[in-house]
């Protein structure tokens, strides 16, 4: 069984996406043997009021009929925008959402913003994960209207060091770190803290190209299949798992990566 912990529906304003609604995603999942996908609505990155996007996703899932159970919706929350606490409550209690995705760069706040800390503490208290990502699209192909964190410039793309301060601030929360595309290096003390934290990373990002080694250094329970679809192709994240050799990951570990770790982490 495969559970994809990093998928989206919705639009990217600077490029047309394919397979970016639940119906198309179900077809993709069926074709490639994926039973369940964690999804959120990309539109929430661009709407000032993210709740509109969460409601869109809820309505789309409601209209999907029996297939809706194949999705685990996550809310997009901007903790610096008025009413987010109400939105979070509504997403969890009314919309049945099982986690939160945040976008500090797009929503223009710092990783240590007190509002974000408050949100993470609240999700912790609700036993919900909060998901960060390194980036949404490759900065080298960014539109002139997109954010300007650009690889190999004085304002580079994020690394783990940029995300880590929130983990340090609320070390007992549940974190998902997605599309891991740049360095995972931390200094020794932070690395030790990171290793103790409840973190699940997905396999969509290019830094996961040596998953066999990462399983040894980070542990077998900290990674799970993810696609970052429909922005990234559907199979590369899967290929990083399926091509592992027996000495890198036996059958048990592969099942953890395909679905076991996601099931445990998300409390499915």
């Amino acid at each position: 069984m495969l559970i994809d912990i990093n998928a989206y529906v919705g639009h990217w304003p600077f490029m047309q996406l394919k397979y970016n609604n639940c119906t198309a995603l179900v077809e993709r999942m069926n074709k490639y043997g994926v039973e369940t996908s964690v999804i959120s609505n990309l539109n929430g990155i661009f709407y000032k009021n993210t709740q509109s996007a969460n409601r869109e996703l809820y309505e789309e899932l409601k209209a999907l009929g029996t297939q809706r159970k194949r999705f685990i919706p996550f809310a997009v929350i901007n903790p610096t925008y008025a009413g987010w606490q109400y939105d979070l409550e509504e997403c969890v209690k009314k919309f049945g959402m099982k986690g939160v995705r945040v976008y500090p760069k797009y929503h223009d706040y710092e990783i240590t913003d007190p509002a974000l800390i408050e949100l993470v503490k609240r999700t912790r208290d609700m036993n919900l994960p909060v998901a960060f990502n390194y980036k949404m699209v490759d900065s080298r192909q960014r539109s002139w209207m997109d954010i300007d964190y650009v690889a190999y410039t004085p304002k580079p793309e994020w690394t783990l060091k940029n995300i880590f301060p929130i983990i340090k601030a609320v070390p007992d929360a549940k974190y998902m770190i997605l599309n891991v595309t740049n360095s995972m290096q931390l200094d020794a003390a932070d690395a030790a803290l990171f290793k103790k934290a409840r973190v699940l990373m997905d396999t969509s990002g290019r830094t996961i190209n040596d998953l066999g080694s990462l399983l040894k250094t980070q542990g077998t329970e900290r990674f799970a299949f993810g696609t970052h679809a429909p922005i990234l192709d559907y199979l590369t994240g899967m290929l990083r798992i399926e091509s592992l050799r027996a000495e890198e990951a036996d059958a048990r570990v592969k099942e953890l990566l395909r679905s076991g770790n996601a099931t445990h982490f998300l409390g499915l």
Partner: peptide, 21 residues
């Protein structure tokens, strides 16, 4: 609330497996 009740039984047939390798 119009949310699907938690635990509601919905049809969920597993998709056929895909042999990527």
């Amino acid at each position: 609330s119009a949310a699907p009740p938690p635990g509601e039984a919905a049809t969920r047939s597993a998709p056929p497996s895909f042999d990527l390798m």
